[in-house]
Nucleic acid binder design. Structure first.
Length: 523
RNA sequence: GCUCCCGUAGUCUAGUGGUCAAGGAUAGAGGCCUCUCGAGCCUCUGACGCGGGUUCAAAUCCCGCCGGGAGCACCA
């Protein structure tokens, strides 16, 4: 069986890739490593997981597009969903946030779209901003049994007392007062910052943040989905304490940065007498080249310096896809780290290598001539003619394209400069001797012979049908030049390998008179 | 500072007491192939942080140290 899979996998890969033009859903795989992913380590089993009885969730805060760190959580959850034939929920973690960290309306669509393009199937989508009544409903019992209380301390005072391990004056007030004060928070008797609800925990807890943590606070911030409908908002741990149980989550797979939240949720479940899901963590993942922060991107995007969330400099998932990096490569990439708890920084090169393996067998080759120099070939006995070139050197079934050749060509300026006076080969066409200097405008080069010879090989474009092309690099550096004629009509999303240059993806078709733009994926 | 996590080659990762004179990926070197500086094939370089202990036997268990990371909001 395994031997069978490995012999079939090249074709299997190829056929799958042919269908990957758009956001098609991926086929459900059996379990463990899917075909084509022999290199991936098997993930360990989830504690207490039973096939058909696993529910997972992913909970992004909607403040921008998803990045590679998110991808680790998403693909890991998705891998387990597939293994156990379970359910996977997307839960928008869209409570009001804070003045510095706010949800934005466009982010909901951005995230949904990212999931679709990633090929991750969702069983259900929830919005926390729809679930405020649920959160409210579970608080009174906590007040009633004295495990939570309303605190009227100003923020500064709260922090000071917490640091000093001192209780606040309201901590032990009678239940009736607590219930009444809670009603007061909901009805608007207190203003922003004047009252919070806190969980009663050990005031001597070694982690100050854990001492009587805040459960609800008042916020007058406008919410992109529900506006000002609510003014009392739960904090992350409380909303999760409720949702992880009410939505029937069985396993929580989250980043290591959220370990403290486990303890908080468990404290809440203990107070309610509930049993919650199991927690599993994974370390933080960063791509070495992606140094900038999310808030920095927001600023650059707002100012217009960046072209939105798909700007390659953001290293967002959509920016990778825009460059021609397949979602499947990202999936393999993040799954290759397993459930490791180490925080890691991986060079993008590793991701590129995976993508290259994935796309190379099915990506057509084309000539792109950067910094073009016009060259006139003198004495070519074959004269003007049409030549056919294979789209892929190893896959003749991918067909050919036809070029109309005359005596005028564009050659890469750098190569011409470094081979002046030498004989070079225009790849797949003919051999010429370059002149000793770059003087006359169409550079005269004498035809020497036609058959292949072991000479430096240069890519070329017939001047008569050259198309102006630009390639936008990862850091937004622009390389301009000429490409083969049919690149003008390449559909958006088309992948090409520009020979001796790298893999690129065609951007939207340009307006009349504009250069055709491609995004650079990797060498 | 406090709490927690991690420490296998340049970078990731497999490894849960013997089959490890440590496997894979990526990067690097060399060769083959190829009318691309891509892919493919072959070969090579290269690692268990340090010090104790437990054991017949330790990358694997225990302790200490040293390094690295994360968390420590009325953010998520």
């Amino acid at each position: 069986m395994i031997a069978e899979i490995s012999t079939l996998s090249p074709e299997e890969r190829a056929t799958r890739l042919q269908h990957l033009g758009g956001p098609l859903p991926r086929a459900v795989r059996p379990n463990r490593s899917p075909p084509g992913d022999e290199a991936l380590p098997d993930l360990p089993d989830l504690p207490g997981a039973e096939p058909g009885k696993v529910t997972l969730r992913f909970a992004p805060f909607p403040s921008g597009a998803l990045h590679v760190g998110h991808a680790r959580g998403i693909f890991l959850n998705d891998a387990y969903r597939q293994r156990y034939d379970g359910r996977f929920f997307l839960v928008f973690d869209d409570t009001v946030g804070s003045a510095e960290k706010r949800p934005s309306l466009e982010s909901y669509d951005l995230i949904l779209e990212d999931f679709q393009l990633a090929g991750v199937k969702l069983s259900k989508i929830y919005y926390k901003s729809d679930r405020l009544p649920e959160y409210y409903r579970h608080l009174p019992p906590l007040l009633e049994q004295g495990s939570a209380y309303v605190c009227l301390c100003p923020a500064e005072e709260l922090r000071r007392r917490r640091e000093a391990r001192e209780p606040c004056p309201e901590r032990d007030r009678e239940k009736a007062w607590q219930q009444e004060a809670w009603e007061g928070m909901l009805s608007g008797r207190y203003g922003e910052g004047e009252a919070v609800v806190r969980l009663k925990t050990d005031l001597n807890h070694p982690n100050p943040a854990f001492r009587d943590r805040v459960l609800f606070r008042i916020s007058e911030l406008d919410h992109p989905r529900v506006g000002h409908r609510y003014r009392v908002w739960p904090l992350l741990e409380y909303s999760w304490g409720v949702d992880d149980v009410e939505l029937g989550i069985t396993h929580v797979l989250r980043g290591k940065d959220l370990v403290m939240e486990d303890e908080m949720e468990q404290a809440l479940w203990k107070a309610w007498g509930w049993t919650g899901p199991r927690f599993t963590h994974f370390g933080l993942l960063r791509i070495r080249e992606a140094k900038l922060s999310k808030s920095k991107f927001q600023k650059e995007i707002a100012s217009g310096a960046f072209e939105g969330w798909s700007d390659p400099r953001t290293w967002s998932l959509r920016s990778l896809w825009r460059r021609g990096i397949r979602p499947d490569a990202v999936r393999q990439f993040v799954l290759s780290f397993g459930l490791s708890l180490a925080d890691i920084e991986v060079p993008a090169e590793t991701l590129y290598a995976m993508n290259r393996h994935l796309i190379d067998p099915t990506t057509p080759r084309r000539a792109f001539v950067p910094q073009p120099v016009p060259v006139k070939v003198l004495g070519d006995p074959l004269g003007p003619r049409r030549v056919e070139l294979a789209n892929h050197p190893e896959h003749p079934e991918m067909g050919e394209r036809t070029l109309q050749v005359d005596d005028l060509f564009y050659l890469p300026g750098r190569d011409v400069a470094s081979h002046l006076g030498e004989e070079v080969r225009l790849k797949d066409l003919l051999n010429v001797r370059l002149p000793g200097s770059i003087r006359p405008e169409p550079l005269p080069a004498n035809f020497t012979s036609q058959p292949n010879k072991p000479l430096p090989r240069l890519q070329w474009v017939p001047a008569g049908e050259a198309v102006p092309v630009s390639v936008l690099g990862v850091d937004h550096e622009l390389t301009e030049g000429f490409g083969e004629a049919d690149l003008a009509r390449a559909p958006e999303g088309g992948l090409f390998q520009f020979e001796r240059f790298g893999f690129v993806r065609a951007d939207v078709l340009p307006l009349a008179g504009e250069r055709r733009r491609f995004f650079f994926a990797h060498p």
